[in-house]
Simulated scan of single mutants.
Amino acid sequence: MKTYVLKRILSLIPVLFIVSIMVFIIIHLTPGDPASVILGEEASEESRAELREELGLNLPIHQQYFDWILGVLRGDLGDSFFMQQPVTQAIFEHLGPTLSLTILSQITAIIIALPLGIMAAKRRGTFTDQSFMALSLLGISIPNFLLGLFLILILAVNLQWLPVAGYQPLSAGLFNHLKFLIMPAIALGTMQAALIARMTRSSMLETINTNFIKTAWSKGLHERKVIYKHALRNSFIPILTVIGQTFGMLIAGAAVTETVFNIPGLGQLIMNSVERRDYAVIQGTVLFITVSYVFINLFVDLMYGIIDPRVRLNQK
């Protein structure tokens, strides 16, 4: 197991190196002069030149990358020109709302998807199966921002059950915290629920038709034991893969939902920084989200070896 874990961790080094290069290049290839955007069109050329020098934008791009990556390795993502604070501090100030939203969205998606996927597999070809798959297709097709607007119109405006938008931290009370996150969590998690449900159904169908499941049925084992203990466990690796990928997608895709519901998370931080061309914040936040996605996939990779020991044996 130690060898398996070590190999997986070492494999991340080139991935993270490539990710850092891509993040840096994409940000710096954006057209337009950052100094002009920051200071405005009326600023003098001398002021713009001073700002370029202050931000290091007058250096060759390879030197800018080298200086930036050295700071990243020291845990220094730079300073925000507009917020006048370290980028690391800005990220952690906005991390709480995004983390709460993504965790609640993922929990909602799993609670909805797993039972529906298992039930659809058990009743393959029936009206129930076809109905669930039609709903999952609808869930994949509707953009989360559009679903969010529908939820606001129905639940907040017409029925007035929930607040239209905003955010309350957990310190304000669990009920108040969840009250502001229910609609965005449903809007953000619906597509993920549809993906997980379809993968659950597909993976369960493959396992249910195997010989060892037929043997379990022939022994007269209870349906719940056959389905949940034997079939679901042996089907769970592809399901876990989708869950891990969708959780990373939730973190990366929360920007639009946070904008619709006015949640002060990482998404809003990126959107505001893009408008102001705050390079340090954009680079640091995008890198943080990307690295988080990579480590989520590492965690899922390690879970493979726990769920199915054959994975560890194959990696020797």
Rank of each mutant, 00 (worst) to 15 (best):
M1P: 01
I9C: 13
L12Q: 04
V15S: 03
F17G: 04
F17S: 12
V19R: 01
I21V: 14
F24G: 02
F24K: 03
I25P: 12
P34G: 06
V37S: 10
L39P: 08
L55K: 12
L55C: 09
L57T: 04
L59H: 01
P60N: 10
D67N: 14
W68G: 00
R74T: 08
L77Q: 07
D79F: 11
G96E: 14
L99M: 15
I103Q: 08
S105R: 05
I110V: 15
I110K: 00
I111C: 08
L114V: 14
G117Q: 03
M119Y: 11
F127T: 14
L135D: 09
S136Y: 05
I142Y: 05
L147M: 11
G148I: 09
L151C: 05
P163H: 07
P169R: 11
G173S: 12
N176L: 15
L195Y: 14
A197N: 02
M199V: 15
T200P: 01
N211Q: 15
F212N: 03
W217I: 15
G220C: 01
R224L: 09
Y228S: 06
Y228D: 09
Y228F: 15
H230W: 04
A231E: 03
A231L: 11
P238M: 10
I239M: 04
L240C: 05
Q245E: 04
T246A: 11
L250I: 11
G265N: 08
G265Q: 06
Q268A: 08
M271F: 14
M271R: 11
E275K: 11
R276S: 13
D278G: 10
Q283N: 12
L298E: 06
V300S: 06
V311L: 01
R312Y: 01
R312I: 15
N314K: 12
N314T: 05
K316W: 00
